Simulated scan of single mutants.
Amino acid sequence: MENMKNRFSDYPEVSFIEDTSFSDLQTRLIDDYEKRYKELTGKKISLALADPYRLILYSCAVAIYQGYQYEDRAGKMGLLKYSTGEFLDNLAAFKKVKRNKATPASTMIRFTLSAAVEKKVVIPKGTRVKGQELYFETTEKGEIIPGQLYADIPSKCQTTGETGNGYLPGEIRTLTDLLPYTLKVSNLTQTSGGTDRESDEELVERIYLAPVSYSTAGPERAYEYWVKTFSPSVGECRIISENPGEVDIYVTMADGTIPDDEFLQELGEYLEKSNVRPLTDHVVVKKPRPIEYSIDLVYYIRNEDSDKEETIKAAVHTACDNYIAWQKKVGRDINPSELIYLVMGAGVKMVEIQKPVFIEIPDSAVAVPGNIALIYGGRKDD
């Protein structure tokens, strides 16, 4: 997702209090007092640092400046560049945009009988199963027909947010709600799709894109707006046209993973709505092709930074994580220069990169990390 700070960098900073500082206000109060005193008495006065009246004016300045800050904040909350929280939600109303709520992770649970039975076995909607500390529940009624041993039922986490993501197949295996039959449970797919409440930065981006959605003429930004409105779990999307009259949309999830077929189907059905898709557009939602790259580098720090060795090592690993996140944009070329820039910014003296090498990535693909080797080469003199 493009950083909104960069998008707003061309817009000027504003101040509703004319950039008045606390010291400016203190000075003004004292000057006004001394000026008014001379007007009333004809005598010139200069308040000493320990003068009781000067101290009273200082105390007044604290309360007055707090009011200044409230005034400045109130004005800025009405501007997209500064607005946050509930103020941003109300600002979004002007564009008919609402903040996306947190969503639960989902998976497919297999319920297996210990032995076949001669009658239908019903597994009620809402049947709970547990994986470690989180509970999942079935989202529809399931049935194991006579002669069969199992039924696969879609399920969702009872706790919304990203916390429910990442359970590997087989890790959800405890049946919480007992049923008349002996059943074994296990998730068939890794849990995914759980998202936290839409952040301010994500909401700001959708508000910024909202005007392009007023027409279904099919511009790239309009499709980007509708894709990100569908679900906060969408990370990046690339809109291209590979055939005449066709709109091809390549999507990744917010955590950088490739979406599953069910998610793509639901997104495709959403984009087929008449208020989203122009009548003549054929919209196809696709998975980007993953192109794997490795990271293999050796870095050195300065002798003078020996006391910060562990801090710099941690910063290098953080820089690598930031590079991986940056590289996950659909259609973005694998660029080792960005990795060098980030690692050097961590405070190292020198970095030797064997991998990755520069690779052009087509619009229909996304770079994904493979083997990662960050080797500390020791300390060197300048």
Rank of each mutant, 00 (worst) to 15 (best):
S192K: 09
I258T: 04
L149D: 06
V343N: 00
E18F: 09
F22N: 04
Q66T: 11
S337C: 01
K273M: 12
S231D: 08
D281W: 00
G245V: 09
I145D: 13
K156E: 13
F136R: 03
Y299N: 01
Y299H: 12
L25G: 04
V62A: 05
G164R: 12
F22E: 09
V122Q: 10
I17W: 12
P169K: 09
L179P: 07
V276E: 03
E13F: 06
S106M: 10
E242R: 11
K130F: 07
S274M: 11
I153Q: 10
K43Y: 14
P219Y: 11
F16A: 12
L339M: 14
M344T: 12
N335F: 00
M77A: 08
L279Q: 06
G142R: 08
D281P: 02
N275D: 15
K286C: 04
I109E: 01
C157H: 05
A315Q: 13
Y53R: 11
R73L: 11
G164W: 12
D200T: 05
I258F: 03
E2S: 06
I340S: 04
N6H: 09
K273P: 01
T252A: 00
S106W: 01
T20W: 04
K81F: 05
A222G: 15
Y70D: 12
Y223T: 00
V97P: 09
N303D: 14
K355G: 00
L29D: 01
G331E: 14
D196I: 10
N90E: 15
E266S: 15
D333Y: 10
F111L: 09
D307Q: 07
D307S: 14
G256P: 13
G78K: 07
E2A: 12
D196R: 03
E34I: 04
M1A: 08
